[in-house]
Design a protein around this nucleic acid. Sequence first.
DNA 1: TGTACATCAGTGAACGCGCGTTCACTGATGTAC
DNA 2: TGTACATCAGTGAACGCGCGTTCACTGATGTAC
Lengths: 197, 197
Amino acid sequence: MTQAALHQGKTGYHHGQLREALVDAALEALQKGGVDDLSLRGLAKATGVTQAAPYSHFRDKDDLLAAAAERGFQRLALQMASEAAGTRDKKDRVKKLVSAYIRFAAENRTLFQLMFGREFSDMKKYPTLAMTAGKSYALIAGALTSEKEDTRFLTVCIWSLGHGLATLFADRKVSLGQFDAASIDDFTERALQTINI
Amino acid sequence: MTQAALHQGKTGYHHGQLREALVDAALEALQKGGVDDLSLRGLAKATGVTQAAPYSHFRDKDDLLAAAAERGFQRLALQMASEAAGTRDKKDRVKKLVSAYIRFAAENRTLFQLMFGREFSDMKKYPTLAMTAGKSYALIAGALTSEKEDTRFLTVCIWSLGHGLATLFADRKVSLGQFDAASIDDFTERALQTINI
DNA sequence: TGTACATCAGTGAACGCGCGTTCACTGATGTAC
DNA sequence: TGTACATCAGTGAACGCGCGTTCACTGATGTAC
């Protein structure tokens, strides 16, 4: 197979990039529908492949969904990191990290639901996923590290605050009408000001 | 039908309390399995009734689940209110309300997932549910009311903090091992101390 | 450089399941007389 | 008090669907000689 064909991703019979394509399809499907609308067959079809083809790359449906969730966690950590890149001031850095987290949830509702929802309650079954998921936590924890304070407590505290609003957005319990993308920054800033870091 | 039969709930043909019994069955099923394991047929069977019988009391499956969620919200508000009953001190009262909220989530994982999860994203479809769901919010908002501060902001802020931890518990992203029922109180107290109400 | 061969990604058909919902019905209920 | 009747909660059978997964297979690939 030529490089070109590899990137194009099709040669008629062999797909060439099926694994990645399926994960892409899952993320794309999540922009149109909810987590419950994801089906192996649907993703296979969207990728232009037979319904049994995914089993060459994933053990079962959960395995595919876990891969999609992991990509989500990678993106989340990336967005947080790049948002806060270069910011050294502690409070400022935490603010940027948390606000990126909340914006991610607001902008990727259903993906966020897959990542943090009931799908992967038993994270022991998905060790790779668990590791990747830990990155965003680690970013916040890292920014909060200090000798004086109880870092673990502070991190859970601030993570909860961010995750709470993120979840309420994703599940539409707080409407975006009142808190749009721009005002998420304001909210986070204000919220962190009322907390004594 | 006699009163006794009414309370026993069975007369052979007519059930007598089927609507309530189905909601009970749903709450009970949620203690054993997840939200995705709930099925109309299963609940009917658990209630000792044919699979089509629920349709005499509920429009469809979602209607039944909404009724179950609403009972959950009633319980939540009740537990919060009774926990904080008699407590006048503002900070103290808020602490009791929030900690009751978190404990409810930890003790009723799957019910909490049904109540706040993706099921009822469009709350407009379930006006009664929305009203009942508002009770716990109103309790916190009520405790925080003040002329000086922006109540709306503070409420969302503290609600987010509580809801974040509650969700992380319910979805098993933070393990109860480190934060058991007793220490939830401690955590809440400490968290609220770091916030300037 | 050309050919035989092992590998394995993707095919296409099929299995079996549980589900939500519908339908015409039946039997229990309570009420009007 | 007794009987006719309207109501409607619950029955049982059936419909149709989409799903995850399996299986024997086939055709493309790249490698060893």
